[in-house]
Amino acid sequence: MREKTITGCGVILLITLFAADLLTGSADIAPAEVWNALCGLSADKQTVLIINGIRLPKAVTALLAGISVSVSGLLMQTLFRNPLAGPYVLGISSGASLGAAVCVLGVSSGILHQTGPVLETAGLAGAAWLGAAAVLLLISAASRKIGDNTVILILGMMLGAGIDAVVQILQFLSDEQSLKSYIIWTMGSLGHVTGLRLGIMGGATIAGVVICFILGKNLNLLLLGESYAATAGTDVRKTRHWIFLATILLSGTITAFCGPIGFIGLAVPHLSRMIVRNADLRVLLPCTALCGGCIMLCCDIIAKLSAIPVNAVTSLVGIPVVVWVLFRSRKTFPVSF
């Protein structure tokens, strides 16, 4: 009952924030006009373009990004049984950054500049996605050999640090214009995801979330640790591979299309735990997805009102939550000893 009430409230809040996000922007458009534009009743071409061409895709992107990043954070915290696990710790964000850096700062940037803005952005996104996937494949291969989650976590951090160093070298060697493009990508943006890319992002998010729901029972068993999960009949290795696949789909795609979105993946699962007070992943997953969507929409609204990059907003919103969680429940983190 409690869970149903929370889910109901969450859905209402999500719809409200989605509407608020559509109403927010530099152009002053009345709610009735926004509604007319959405329904195809508006005569003003510019309004239709702003609402359907800019604000709607951006709001959908914010929603998808919030869901994806939060759910992948929850997945990693569950798999590694570590409250501080997230895309960054595993080196996924670094892998994506390397892909982007190679694309923007390296050899390919010259070629990409000549191909026009659409292909340039798609090339950048694709490279970042490949980088993220490559890191996860490496970690996954290592996990097959090692089998110890803590070692894999440390390996991910080492890999991330190594990749960051390579990116720094690339930055040092690149020219001013390329460096600026790259820095803008790292700030994160929800505004460049339209058409086909929005479709891919939607598909990846749905696929990732569906995998998570199918894994629900096994994720619950993993809460107790791999020995308990295995002796309860779970194929731990297979489950781990599915979790990795969901992470590539969720976290990799978002990092590729929107740039690295900081701290939402780490903070939102903790917020959800505080709200539902239930460790059951089958309850926690939908709540995390809802919570992630709401917070990302909030961040987008704040970013629009204050005209600052959305990644700065997510960090400013996320970091206090993480710090608060650290202070509040040091004893109750899901760790074993």
Binding site: L223, L224, G225, Y228, R273, V276, R277, N278, A279, D280, S329, K331, T332, F333, P334, V335, S336, F337
Partner: peptide
Amino acid sequence: GRVRIPDL
């Protein structure tokens, strides 16, 4: 050893 899972 002991496993601690909050809210379980």
